[in-house]
């Protein structure tokens, strides 16, 4: 894998730090007028999600990390692992709950999502920005209320709970933004 100097640290670059794959978030050049130049780098550990700041001497370099993000289809949950498939190669990958993390509550069988691979092993899962899921449980709303004000909690087929308008009912399919967890609209079938 190539190595990258502090001058090449750009947001999104994947590098190895303390034996973990990391992504550069921000890179600030710090140089006292009469002193050594540094780069103050904000960096996310891709395995833990933790963000740290680290200072390097300008010109120092880090080894690149073999990290790729791949669109995959979520297949099923066997109780211990969740299984994903790369649709072109049909190659399958399995992830435990720790790797899937918060994405789990948005994953429906057959839906597409993004799996991050480090040295060809999954380290993270990101659901699609928008998912369409069926409501399995919500209080019956007041008929005729279309204002959308107020709202009520609704439990979805994948286990996620989102706030929906009062007029939305059990068994209806809705569109949700997974980045904010917000209801977007009803989906007409």
């Amino acid at each position: 894998m190539a190595s990258y100097s502090t001058n090449e640290f750009k947001a999104g670059l994947k590098v190895m730090l303390d034996n973990d794959p990391c992504a550069i978030i921000e890179n600030e050049f710090v140089k006292p007028g009469k002193g050594q130049a540094f780069n103050r780098v904000k960096i996310r550990n891709l395995k833990t999600g933790r963000v740290i700041e680290r200072t390097f001497k300008s010109g120092e370099s880090l080894e690149g990390a073999d990290v790729v993000e791949m669109d995959m289809q979520y297949l099923y949950n066997d109780g211990e692992f969740r299984h994903f498939m790369q649709p072109e190669s049909f190659e399958q990958y399995q992830c435990d709950e720790k790797i899937v993390g918060d994405a789990a509550k948005w994953l429906k069988d057959q839906d597409m999502c993004t799996v991050m691979l480090w040295n060809d092993a999954p380290i993270g899962v990101t659901p699609a920005n928008f998912v369409e899921l069926t409501i399995v449980e919500t209080d019956p709303g007041v008929r005729g209320d279309t204002s959308g004000g107020g709202g009520k909690p609704a439990k979805l087929e994948t286990g996620a709970v989102v706030r929906v308008p009062l007029f939305v009912q059990t068994d209806e399919m809705i569109k949700v933004d997974t980045r904010t967890g917000e209801y977007i609209s009803r989906v007409k079938e």
């Binding site: 710090v30 006292p32 002193g35 050594q36 540094f38 103050r40 700041e53 680290r54 200072t55 390097f56 001497k57």
Partner: peptide, 27 residues
């Protein structure tokens, strides 16, 4: 003080320590 990398970065170089600490913790 969240600057552990300074130890290996600066070693026994007083001027370098001052550059790192001043630019991160004072300036």
């Amino acid at each position: 003080h969240q600057l552990p990398e300074a130890v290996s970065l600066c070693e026994h170089d007083h001027a370098l320590w001052l550059d790192v600490l001043f630019s991160h913790k004072v300036q």
